[in-house]
Design a binder for these strands. Sequence first.
DNA 1: CAGGCGATGGGTAACGTTACCCATAATTCA
DNA 2: TGAATTATGGGTAACGTTACCCATCGCCTG
Lengths: 352, 352
Amino acid sequence: MATGEGRRRVTIADVASHAKVSTTAVSKVIRNAYGVSPAMRERVNAAIEELGYRPHAAARAMRGRTYTIGLMLPHIRNPFFADILDGLMDQLAGTDYQAIMIQGGATRTTERRAVDALIDRQVDGIVMVAPLAAKTRLEEVAGQIPTVVLGRHERSTVYDAVFDDDETGAELAVQHLIDLGHRRIAHITHQDDSSARPGDLLHKIRSEAYERVMREHGLADEIAVATTYYSEEGGYQGTLELLNRSPRPTAIFAGADQAAFGALAAVHESGLSVPGDVSIAGYDNTRLAALPNISLTSVDQNGALMGKTSGRLLLERFEGRTSAVRFSVTPRLVQRNSTAPAPGTAHDKPTT
Amino acid sequence: MATGEGRRRVTIADVASHAKVSTTAVSKVIRNAYGVSPAMRERVNAAIEELGYRPHAAARAMRGRTYTIGLMLPHIRNPFFADILDGLMDQLAGTDYQAIMIQGGATRTTERRAVDALIDRQVDGIVMVAPLAAKTRLEEVAGQIPTVVLGRHERSTVYDAVFDDDETGAELAVQHLIDLGHRRIAHITHQDDSSARPGDLLHKIRSEAYERVMREHGLADEIAVATTYYSEEGGYQGTLELLNRSPRPTAIFAGADQAAFGALAAVHESGLSVPGDVSIAGYDNTRLAALPNISLTSVDQNGALMGKTSGRLLLERFEGRTSAVRFSVTPRLVQRNSTAPAPGTAHDKPTT
DNA sequence: CAGGCGATGGGTAACGTTACCCATAATTCA
DNA sequence: TGAATTATGGGTAACGTTACCCATCGCCTG
């Protein structure tokens, strides 16, 4: 276990000479390859232990696998992504695989750079969370390396897809507000730089489901959308804009909790109360939403399960699966105190 | 710019033959090395462009640098870390370096695995945020690879250190509460698995500063510490424990905003109000703290600056600096509505 | 008992890049 | 003008690992 200061790294050759066997034999033991006797295995493992050998991932990358999975996140501020990572790491625990993360940023250009960086570093598989890239680009990536796309809905034959049923989720939220007697229900959506088809992006799906449900209830004229960002700042700005309209909405469905937090701030700063004057619902059910003095009604999507599944799908790909898989998570509504019957409505809370 | 599906990667050799020059020449152009004519440079760059060549980081790792900086974060749920990453990426923008992240987890074992993984992947430099490892381990890592330790206070001659003046920060918070007339001021600290010397860990420094200031004001008997975690759950549990004591504290200084959020929840659930019955102060001044319905008094430490500086220090190391540098950020108190004069105190808010 | 076969171990050429060195041409200087 | 120096380009051996192939040995089978 001696690991000296600036000392040269322990290599497979060191292990081989220490165990008095060939480097090939050592490599076989490490990889659990065929053709090693138990005696040999033990001998080599002892030497590995003694010298504190660890495989050099970069060297491995030249020939075989790196045992690395790359996770591209748009950014790390959203705690929902932490759930995804938790699930992924949970799945990877006990395997030889390591997860590394990279921040994709807000534009297609930065995202491309980030994903290229992962490919250049020869990760064995990639999980892209809510990517902005066009489908052709996703398939190009997936053509080079096993890929899971998380949060997009389009069908592909080359990559696996994991996503929440955003249509249902948005429906749950809007329906809930309608049930509470609201009619002027506004929506905050996310502006992106994506070149994906609108119908494949989660925020588009949520906003379209919002509009559809509104129309289905004869509320087409009440549709009001602020297009900002799924972030606190975005929610804040969007809400200020919505509250300025006349008549102002009595409820806001924010497409993400982060935006809902900003909405809460904006409503308070406008001298209005939640849910007295304005009801607010979010999406993601982040832990913060459960805090009593936020108590945000939100749509829960099982991020940990999505992350875990992404990992599993990649491991399956490594084992040889070539057919594409789609995995969908069903959302559910978590009612809290940020939503209440519309002002002036004699309305009983619906029984769940 | 043609990048076919499963096609073989474009290598330096492809570029060389396409440009009708040697691979050496291509390598020189890429690395901006000495000994290339402008004509050669242009020729090679044209070929690179045309073929869509990107350097293979793993191959580079075998000889030179990977242009990769590894960022070890204990976990990604804390939005404060997002500030650090933002600062780091800001510094790295415009350079050839890429930042990758890895989650260290809650124990020394998982952290070690994570950092080893970065080393095995041959990153050029490492930034370790609030590591749990013993100083000897940190120096062992730094002996192999340029390292910045963020959030620890000990002096080292081998790695660079970036940290907040936690002593002053904690002092600001506690002093603020004392100024408001509070006497029964409790503290929530973080339990760790670290083998660092207590005086070097930020949460120990904060808790010791808390105790010191209390004693300096003759409040030694009022010292009450709950040792849980810097997380929502930890803050929640710790606060329940503290509120159970009799007499209960009128103020709680949580060592981190995340814990303070949990504390807010616990106070509310106990049927008490903030700041009416209990004042709460946090640390980190995360964006959430500024939301009107949280409005948490908190100590601001400039995370972006710390991240940016970490990046700068690494780049300097790559340029050849060998002496160790320490960089300290000065915190400041941001007063909001979660702190107020102690119940039953005729006290004017101190002018700032 | 010869031929063959499975089990085991090793030799070696890659993988893509760079550091080091050498060769040649072009230019400068005395 | 000859020698020395500089500028420019290329050849080649690594870096650490693995995939592929071959050699050997003991044993089984007909």
